[in-house]
Amino acid sequence: MSDSLAPYLPYLLALILPPGVFIVLLLVGLRQLRPRRALGIALVLLACTGLWLGSTTGWAWVTQSFVLRVPPALGPLDLDELKTQAKAQAKGEPSVAIVVLGGGVVPRSPDYRLSDLSFIGLQRLRYGLWLARQTGLPVAYSGGLPHGMPASVTPEARVAERIAREEYGITLRWVEDSSRDTRENAGRTAALLRQAGVRKIVLVTHAWHMPRAQRAFAEALGGSGLHIQPAPMGLLLPDTSPLARWTPSLDGLIENRHAWREWLARLLGR
């Protein structure tokens, strides 16, 4: 993406992601009620249906499962296998590593008076460090500054490095702090880990982001033989009551926005 367009991206996304796209559709439908009544009614009904479904966790689960096709979470057997691999490499250079993908940085938190990770970034870091404690594997964090953010801001991976050390007592083995998006995450982290002799990565990111992240890493790795094991987090489970799943909620709106954004990024080849 061109840096000149980056400042306008939030406004563009506000129009094409829920609920913005359906609000625009509703306004268009209302405008058409007088000159084209049937079309206007159809657009209003479509907008209202979209506003409702686009704010439910049930629809977000359907989108993640059947459109994005997110992989399952790591299970006990996966963790046992990773523990065994960690023990095998304990005395030598690591061949297996956990890779946490950045999720955003807060330039200056009003609470801490320091740069901080976004809520998404903190969730990913926490899960990656939990996996490290469970398995004994080393951790890499990938994340620089998003497009359009001033260079004076501390890169995300450096913020994650400080939080991991000071708040969790864990030192990140690798810090990739120059990437600006998922493709750069993949390309620069893959080069870093190949130099270190890593042959397998346990990829940590949110479930809705995992298919695109896997694709980016697969393209970056090419035929290098480096294996990718997805470790998605934040998966939606259809275990709540049907009424709760299909009732609009803030969680439903957020999850649907993420899913739509990932779908659009896939269409655009990002």
Results as ranks from 00 to 15, higher is better:
Asp239Trp: 02
Val44Asn: 08
Pro71Tyr: 01
Leu43Tyr: 06
Val96Asn: 10
Thr205Trp: 02
Leu39Asn: 08
Pro19Asn: 11
Ser4Ile: 11
Pro211Ser: 07
His147Val: 13
Gln214Thr: 10
Pro150Ala: 00
Pro248Met: 01
Ala265Arg: 02
Pro138Trp: 00
Gly103Asp: 03
Ser178Tyr: 03
Asn185Met: 08
Ala191Met: 01
Ser152Leu: 08
Gly50Phe: 04
Ile201Arg: 05
Gln32Ala: 09
Gly40Glu: 06
Met233Glu: 12
Leu203Asp: 10
Gln32Glu: 09
Trp130His: 13
Val106Phe: 02
Arg173Gly: 11
Ile23Leu: 12
Pro18Met: 08
Gln229Ala: 08
Leu137Ser: 12
Val139Ile: 08
Pro230Leu: 00
Phe66Asp: 12
Met1Asp: 10
Glu219Tyr: 02
Leu43Cys: 15
Glu219Ala: 14
Val105Gln: 01
Gly222Cys: 06
Arg257Ser: 14
Leu53Pro: 09
Glu93Thr: 14
Gly269Trp: 00
Val28Cys: 06
Leu74Phe: 01
Ile163Gly: 10
Trp130Ala: 12
Asn256Met: 01
Arg199His: 11
Ser249Leu: 01
Pro71Ala: 04
Arg257Gln: 15
Leu145Ala: 00
Ser224Asp: 13
Glu255Ala: 14
Val202Lys: 03
Arg188Trp: 10
Phe66Cys: 09
His147Gln: 05
